[in-house]
């Protein structure tokens, strides 16, 4: 058999694609429910951690229950043609709101969750849901040393829309709206700064008084 005949080449590639495509698809479908559950658990964990909610155990249901007890949620347009959830914790004083934000990092999407005071004057905590930045460089945005800087950060609403929160060197360096960039990961830091500021702008544009917060739908079956 001629291994270089176009027919053989095409047939071989088709077969190879079919076999390996089917392999990947099988694994994907077999684990789909687990993946979805894991994703929800990760989301709930990050939300609980960002709001500082007391969680009783380590089981998925514990996180869901903690959220149901403390948070109310409203669905708002995300300003990019979709919808998303804004959470509010009413029993905190001052009241705080939490929201997801995302944008392009160096390699792929970075997804984060931020909690702010309801007047949007102070950031309470920032966490990341998902990212694919370079290990040892951009991925260090997940380290406590970087995340802790955001606690109590005050966006400067009088500054230009892309400089309300500064990540990296800025003058004056003592400004209350500035955090240090991750050393060696300029691109990740500046990308984060860009889409965090975009998100702040969208949040400010929201009509907060008309939002109707509702109890969380029981997210666990």
């Amino acid at each position: 058999m001629n291994r270089n005949a176009p027919g053989y080449v095409l047939g071989f590639m088709a077969l190879l694609c079919a076999v390996f495509g089917a392999g990947v698809a099988t694994v994907h479908y077999a684990t789909r429910d687990m993946l979805a559950a894991n994703e929800r658990l990760n989301h709930n964990r990050v939300v609980c951690s960002a709001f500082g909610l007391p969680v009783e155990g380590r089981a998925p249901a514990d996180y869901a229950r903690a959220m149901e007890q403390a948070l109310v949620v409203a669905t708002v347009p995300d300003g990019r043609g979709g919808a998303r959830s804004v959470y509010r914790r009413a029993d905190a004083d001052p009241p705080v709101v939490g929201f997801t934000f995302w944008g392009m990092g160096f390699w792929d999407r970075i997804e984060g969750f931020a909690v702010m005071t309801a007047d949007l004057e102070t950031l309470v905590r920032l966490r990341f849901l998902d990212h694919k930045e370079t290990p040892g460089l951009g991925a260090r945005i997940e380290e406590a040393a970087f995340l802790d800087q955001f606690e109590g950060l005050r966006p400067d609403w009088t500054a230009a829309p892309d400089r309300r929160v500064m990540i990296g060197p800025a003058a004056p360096t003592q400004a209350g709206n500035r955090v240090d960039a991750v050393t060696g990961a300029t691109q990740t830091s500046s990308a984060l700064m860009r889409f965090l500021n975009e998100e702040l702008e969208r949040l400010r544009a929201l009509d907060w008084t008309s939002l109707e917060f509702e109890p969380l739908p029981g997210s666990e079956p």
Partner: peptide
Amino acid sequence: IVYLRLIVFIVVIA
């Protein structure tokens, strides 16, 4: 079938 994108892209390029 977005999860197959890597394989599909490789095949398209080839």
